[in-house]
Structure formats: structure tokens, C-alpha cells
Design a protein around this nucleic acid. Structure first.
Length: 275
DNA sequence: AGCAGTACCTGGTTGC
DNA sequence: TGCAACCAGGTACTGC
């Protein structure tokens, strides 16, 4: 499941091939993703150079001419860089064929079994688009810290876990990392956001940064495992302290790990460490 | 405005 | 063994 680290890894994977490249051909085999893929408008971009490739939250933004191609991997999507001869497989919905700087053709192939992802075309500036305009800060920047979370949470009665998974608060914290970060910070996920102290929010902001940057460093491994086996990221599984460990004992205090559904999402925590 | 609930989709797992 | 029901996951949307 692509979380922020996987999207960041994907960005690093495709960037070298897209920088200085030209759009050659776009093939859409399945246009019905989360939203309909604007096939014709995308194809009209062919012949133009790609001017930048960026990530914002879990969105990938590929700029060409006066447009921006926005891609979200949903929960089961992936992008691979392939040679033009590569056979098309199941759920290979979109090919973005480019002529790279060196003159060779490559396919950026979008695969998404569950079709929760999207591929849209935005006008510039992309940040004004509805999907991007109200997003909170990136978790790995300086302005995201304990003071910021404390301030933002004062009027919020929802749980701490739902609060940090809110895209308007901070982007890129998915279900797995939310549980992990709250564990690391010693905060019970059910606690109301507005009742958490400034001190605890400092610990939480640090935990989010720590968990995400650690995962980004391991990103390659995760991505490979994911795209090949469609299983849970092998590398993370051994790193996870609470997620999916319902009924097992805590690595820190040997208390029991419990699960609860919070905001329709399974959540895991240690009843001893997290108060 | 904030929040709960719903929808989208399909492969894998569980239950009968 | 086969089939149905359920679950996971991110996020935009609806309606209170």
C-alpha cells in the first residue's frame, strides 16, 4: 500500500527518466479509475518536453507545456519504468511513453488492481486545484512541529489518530504510520486531539518525522516487495511495533497490544505505553 | 465549521 | 469444493 515513503520512492525512480525527456505517446487501456482519465487531453500533450517532476502529499505532479499530469497511486497502484517491448499485464491501465534525454524510449507504466488511484490533467498553477489547495504541510518540513499540531488541535474534539490522518492538518500520514507514530509518542489513539498537551504533540511530531523518514530510507525495498508480491511491505513488517500485532505483547513494556476501530479504520496500540 | 458516514474497487481470506 | 460475505486501504464527497 503506497504511503508517503512509497510515493517518494516512486518519484525517485521515475525522475531520472523524465527529466529532460519528451512525451511521445500516452496509452490508456482502462480510463475508469477513481475518476475518468482524460485520455484525449493527455494525448494532446505529446511532443512536448517534461519540465518538472514533483511530489505533493501522495500526489505525483508531472509538468509539461502549460499543464500538470497528476497521478495518485490510491492504495494498490504502482509505476514502473519499462522498455517499450515489455508485455502488457493485468491492471496495466496507463502507459506514458517518453523519449529520454539519451534518446531511448521508456514506458512509465501505471498498474492499479483496485483502481483507487487517479490520473488527471490540471491547469497551472497546480496548487490552486481543488485536490491540492487545502492540503496541510509536508510532515518532513520545519513548519511541521509540535507547536503547529498543538495550535491546530485546540478546537478539535475528534481522536488524536483521526486528527493526524486529516490531510488538512498534515499530509502523508496513513493508517499504518498513524498507529506507529502514536505508539512511539506514547499517546492513546482514542484521546481527543484538543486534550493533548503541547509536550505530547512535540513527541508526536518527532515520531511522525522519525517513522516516515526511516521508511523513506527503506523505501526501495518496500516498493519492490509490494509490486512483485502484492503483499505487505516485507521490510516494514519487522519494523512495525503495533500495527497488525493485535493480541501480541509490546516490545517495550511487555504489555498487551490491542486493536480498536477508530473512524472506520483498524487501529493498534499498547494499553500500557500509550495513555 | 467540524465530524460521521459513505462510496469507490478487487484480490485475498474467512465462513458456511 | 464452491460460493458468498467480508475486509483492506486513501480520500473526496454528502449530509447532519
Amino acid at each position: 500500500m503506497p504511503e508517503l515513503p512509497e510515493v517518494e520512492t516512486t518519484l525517485k525512480g521515475i525522475s531520472p527518466f523524465l527529466k529532460g525527456a519528451e512525451l511521445k505517446k500516452i496509452v490508456v487501456r482502462q480510463a475508469q479509475l477513481r475518476w475518468r482519465v482524460p485520455t484525449k487531453k493527455l494525448q494532446q500533450l505529446c511532443g512536448n518536453p517534461i519540465t518538472s517532476v514533483q511530489r505533493r502529499a501522495k500526489y505525483l505532479l508531472i509538468e509539461s507545456a502549460d499543464k500538470v499530469i497528476l497521478i495518485h497511486l490510491g492504495m494498490s497502484g504502482s509505476l514502473r519504468v519499462l522498455d517499450p517491448s515489455e508485455a502488457v499485464g493485468k491492471h496495466d491501465h496507463i502507459d506514458i511513453v517518453v523519449t529520454t534525454k539519451s534518446g531511448a524510449d521508456k514506458i512509465i507504466r501505471y498498474n492499479d488492481p483496485r483502481r483507487f488511484g487517479c490520473c488527471l490533467l490540471l491547469d497551472k498553477p497546480a496548487e490552486q486545484h481543488k485536490l491540492l489547495s487545502s492540503l496541510g504541510p509536508e510532515p518532513l518540513t520545519e513548519i511541521f512541529d509540535g507547536d503547529y499540531l498543538y495550535q491546530k488541535s485546540r478546537a478539535r474534539s475528534l481522536s488524536a489518530k483521526q486528527f493526524i490522518m486529516d490531510n488538512k492538518v498534515v499530509v502523508g500520514v496513513g493508517n499504518i504510520y498513524a498507529s506507529e507514530a502514536l505508539f512511539m509518542a506514547g499517546i492513546r489513539p482514542t484521546r481527543a486531539a484538543k486534550q493533548i498537551s503541547r509536550k505530547c504533540y512535540h513527541a508526536l511530531a518527532d515520531a511522525i518525522k522519525h517513522v516516515l523518514s526511516k521508511a523513506i530510507k527503506a523505501g526501495g525495498t518496500t516498493l519492490n516487495d509490494f509490486s512483485q508480491t502484492d503483499g505487505k511491505p516485507g521490510y516494514f513488517q519487522q519494523e512495525l511495533q503495533v500495527y497488525g500485532r493485535d493480541g501480541e505483547s509490546c516490545n517495550t513494556c511487555s504489555g498487551k497490544i490491542k486493536s480498536a476501530v477508530i473512524g472506520q479504520r483498524n487501529t493498534y496500540f499498547c494499553t500500557q505505553c500509550q495513555r
